[in-house]
């Protein structure tokens, strides 16, 4: 069993345009284990992406207090690629586009990066795994010869993030708004992909603004984040309550003093 712990995490981000630093996360605590699916819900601008990017190690986010531990070991000083090789994966809200590098070539490089030099994946084994996952995600084979995310539609990018998840098989996957911009059919396909990973050796933190996704990927634990903190934790039904009452309702119930970007 593997664990991912976030302890009293405070994170600042520097806005390059205004050249001022702003504290986004103000003491986040969270513990997950493999075998569990956690969801984080919260209004826009509350720091959900900041949390996932900080766990992954995006250099713009600065930890000012607290720690992130993977299997008891602090990862704060590790560069991004090392965190990935230790088993972390971030399905991004806005994946980068890279011209001239095919999807297939990239996938192989990513898979081989976490394997020993004398144990690189064979072309046959790679293609077999690729075909299986393409079928599962209802993706055409031609997607793999296209350049990485270049000219992909929003939905294709999301599917491609999940394809990477299935190929790389991380221990913990942080999935940031994989539902945004998806129609219901695509949402089902993406959910099927994530659900296929479920098991004792996999844990996931699913970030979403809406409850809808959680009908398809049913979480074990739901956290609500507001104003840079986790303000409430519960079971799958918490998401449903939230859907009914809205973030503003919960905020008022808890007597929090938090501005919501878009009251809903």
């Amino acid at each position: 069993m593997a664990t991912l712990e976030v302890k009293d995490l405070h994170v600042e981000v520097k806005d390059d345009e205004q050249n001022k630093t702003q504290e986004i996360l103000k003491g986040v605590n969270l513990t997950m284990k493999t075998g569990e699916i956690h969801a984080i819900m919260g209004p826009n601008g509350t720091g959900k992406s900041t949390l996932s990017q900080t766990i992954m190690g995006q250099p713009n986010y600065h930890v000012t207090q607290g720690d992130i531990l993977l299997n008891g070991e602090s990862i704060l000083k590790m560069p991004v690629d090392e965190r990935a090789r230790k088993g972390l994966f971030l399905g991004m809200q806005y994946p980068a586009e890279i011209q001239g590098v095919t999807n297939a070539e990239f996938l192989r490089a990513a898979m081989n990066a976490r394997r020993a030099d004398d144990d690189q994946i064979s072309v046959m084994a790679f293609l077999k795994e690729l075909d299986k996952n393409l079928a599962l995600l209802d993706m055409s084979e031609s997607m793999t010869e296209r350049y990485l995310n270049e000219g992909f539609s929003g939905g294709e990018k999301k599917r491609n993030e999940i394809l990477q998840l299935l190929m790389i098989k991380p221990t913990f996957a942080l999935l940031d708004e994989i539902d945004s911009g998806l129609d219901i059919d695509a949402l089902k396909v993406v959910s099927k992909g994530v659900n296929s990973m479920r098991g004792d050796n996999f844990g996931s933190l699913i970030i979403t603004h809406y409850q809808r996704l959680l009908n398809y990927i049913v979480p074990d634990v739901v956290h609500v984040m507001m104003g840079g903190r986790i303000v409430k934790t519960g079971g799958a039904d918490l998401a449903k309550t939230l859907e009914k009452e809205g973030y503003a309702g919960l905020r008022d119930d808890l007597g929090l003093d938090v501005d919501l970007v878009d009251e809903n």
């Binding site: 992954m56 190690g57 995006q58 250099p59 560069p79 991004v80 690629d81 990935a84 090789r85 994966f89 971030l90 991004m92 994946p95 980068a96 890279i98 990239f106 490089a109 990513a110 990066a113 976490r114 990477q164 790389i168």
Partner: peptide
């Protein structure tokens, strides 16, 4: 960042 987040050095 994107490539390195997939473990690529």
């Amino acid at each position: 960042y994107y490539l390195m987040s997939r473990g690529i050095t």
